[in-house]
Design a protein around this nucleic acid. Structure first.
Length: 257
DNA sequence: AAAACCTCCAACCGCACGTAT
DNA sequence: CATACGTGCGGTTGGAGGTTT
């Protein structure tokens, strides 16, 4: 059986609530309680469905709701709970007094996912720098591209986010093709590749800040890390940079951009 | 100055589940 | 037991406001 949506009846208002509607709803609930949500709007004189009234009350009008930005402690709590509970927003909300599941869900999607990604990037940046130093100390040989490339094909990184000590393995195959055929056409290929945003990043970092030969890859890598989280926006991007810099000694001379 | 683009969040939707009849 | 209803939940959307081009 498929039930019709509760708001399907004609004449019921949808969309943002007005202050007047809020006032009516608050007054009614303070006087009578909410009881039956479906019956409430009619009794209160609101042209809304019961579901809309319930959501407005539980997510916004309830007197015990805590307004304002989330504290760092609250964010950490959400991250920790999400790791164990997953997307159980109501369960997470139950452990954060004054916060609603909807609000937590929004914060997760708009802030915390990015924060985790950024933390992940920072860890990875250090790893890349360490790798670059190791590579710089190695003599460049004719077969080093294959060696470094294969070594770069799988990275094991220990994520030390505030709550995680687990290891993850990342496969860099996605971008390996992109840097596999390095020859005199490399730079023009970089700039014309499908992955134009990466190419643009590379142009900014290497072409802008460090217009030397690619053999100065370590300083370029430091420039990349200085360039910030945008470059490390995705694992794919990080793997791209890793592949590129582990093979930097084999790149042709950098042209003027 | 204005158009295009992006971010954020309140609100909506549909489904699942428990309870009443 | 079957059906109807009420509520809770997670995913998604729309648009306001901010930022960039």
């Amino acid at each position: 059986m498929v039930r019709a949506p509760c708001c399907e009846k004609m004449g019921l208002k949808k969309g943002p609530w007005t202050p007047e509607e809020d006032h009516i709803l608050i007054n009614y609930i303070q006087l009578h309680g909410h009881g039956n949500w479906r019956a409430l709007p009619k009794q209160a004189g609101l042209l809304r469905c019961g579901k809309s009234c319930r959501l407005r009350w539980t997510n916004y009008l309830r007197p015990d709701i805590k307004r304002g930005n989330f504290t760092r402690e609250e964010e950490d709590t959400i991250i920790n709970l999400h790791e164990t509970l997953g997307n159980k927003w109501s369960a997470i909300a139950a452990r954060l007094p004054g916060r609603t599941d909807n609000e937590i869900k929004n914060v997760w999607h708009t802030h915390l996912k990015k924060r985790l990604k950024h933390n992940h990037g920072n860890n990875r940046q250090q790893q890349l720098l360490d790798s670059a130093k190791d590579i710089k100390q190695q003599p460049v040989t004719a077969d080093s591209p294959q060696q470094s490339s294969s070594e770069a094909s799988t990275l094991t990184t220990s994520e030390n986010n505030s709550n995680s000590g687990s290891s993850t393995t990342m496969n860099t195959e996605t971008n390996e093709d992109f840097v596999s055929d390095i020859d005199e056409n490399f730079w023009s290929e970089v700039l014309s590749a499908d992955n134009s945003s990466m190419a643009a990043d590379f142009q900014v970092v290497v072409g802008g800040s460090h217009p030397q030969t690619p053999h100065y890859f370590t300083s370029s890598l430091e420039a990349v890390t200085d360039y910030g989280s945008d470059v490390y926006d995705t694992d794919a991007n990080m793997d791209f940079w890793y592949n590129l810099f582990t093979r930097a000694a084999d790149l042709p001379e950098l042209p003027e951009f």
